[in-house]
């Protein structure tokens, strides 16, 4: 996406956020439209966020958790999508464990497709909501030093954030143990760090990523406690960042693994609850833009 496109979506999302915070009525721009949340991987928070976003815009929202039904019967991803497409929804919101799945679906169906996360590839609405959160709290994205810390290797959130923040002119750093850093990460336009103190030095934003527990039992890092010792965000490490550094996390958090409870719940610095609220607004903006014509 280009900078003007991103800015337009952020503006639209900001407007929706302001409206429901103020209690201003929201135009039901998706009235009589159908939105299907097609989740091949369950994710309660993302699905709920998309469901709320659609409903606030007046859409009829249907949730399908496919992992347990037709795929097991041998129906392919494409068949499932084509079947749903034949029911003429306006939008398919797709979450899948394989990179490129949403793009593949978009080639085969006629309705709009919204990527709600594909494998280790992208999670675009997460990056947009993170960007809006930063913009609201910091005034602007350009020039901010954003340190992304955690399982960069498997993270679609990291990839989407890197692309978006770079496009918007932020300075992005990634921090992870070498086993959780993808090869040639520096070619993505970020600076690569294995020492957390060095990575978050003078950062304006510290974005923590979730680490799957099964990846910490010796496969990628030796143990939970060693990981927390070197890469968990606590007050001591946070002291290296700017005093007003914003703390972010896409959720769900592993408290005591990648982030200390005291830091996560610091109401002055943690934007984690803001991210959830902003998420609904930004997804409203995306659905609106996708279903109601091109961005300006």
């Amino acid at each position: 996406m280009t900078k003007p496109e991103i800015t337009a979506l952020l503006d639209l999302g900001d407007d929706y956020l302001q409206r429901y915070q103020d209690g201003t009525p929201i135009k039901k721009v998706l009235k009589d439209r159908t939105q299907i949340n097609l989740f091949f991987e369950d994710s309660t928070r993302t699905r709920t966020s998309f469901e709320l976003a659609g409903k606030r815009l007046g859409a009829d929202v249907i949730n399908m958790i496919v992992s347990s039904s037709s795929i097991k019967k041998g129906e392919t991803l494409i068949d499932t999508a084509m079947t749903l497409n034949a029911m003429r929804p306006s939008a398919l919101v797709v979450r899948h464990s394989a990179s490129g799945a949403a793009a593949l679906l978009a080639q085969k169906v006629t309705c709009s497709v919204l990527n709600a996360g594909d494998g280790s590839h992208e999670h675009p609405t997460q990056a947009l909501l993170d960007a809006l959160t930063i913009r609201r709290r910091k005034g602007q994205i350009e020039g901010q030093i954003v340190a992304i810390c955690g399982d960069i290797l498997h993270s679609r959130v990291a990839r989407s954030n890197i692309h978006l923040l770079n496009t918007m002119g932020a300075r992005v750093r990634v921090i992870a143990p070498p086993t959780l850093m993808p090869p040639f990460a520096e070619n993505l336009g970020v600076s690569v760090h294995h020492d957390m103190r060095e990575g978050i030095a003078d950062a304006d934003v510290v974005m923590m990523l979730r680490l799957q527990t099964e990846r910490m039992q010796g496969a990628f890092v030796p143990s939970t406690s060693e990981y927390f010792h070197y890469y968990g965000l606590d007050a001591k490490k946070l002291a290296h960042a700017k005093d007003d550094a914003l703390i972010m996390h896409p959720g769900p958090m592993n408290r005591g693994v990648e982030i200390d409870t005291v830091v996560a719940d610091d109401i002055d610095r943690s934007a984690i609850q803001d991210q959830v609220e902003t998420g609904v607004a930004i997804r409203m903006a995306c659905l609106d833009a996708l279903c109601n014509g091109p961005l300006p």
């Binding site: 990179s99 490129g100 494998g119 590839h121 990839r159 090869p183 040639f184 990460a185 070619n187």
Partner: peptide
């Protein structure tokens, strides 16, 4: 394995 696999998340 390389930059392209990193970009594609594969």
């Amino acid at each position: 394995e390389g930059e392209t696999s990193t970009r594609l998340g594969l």
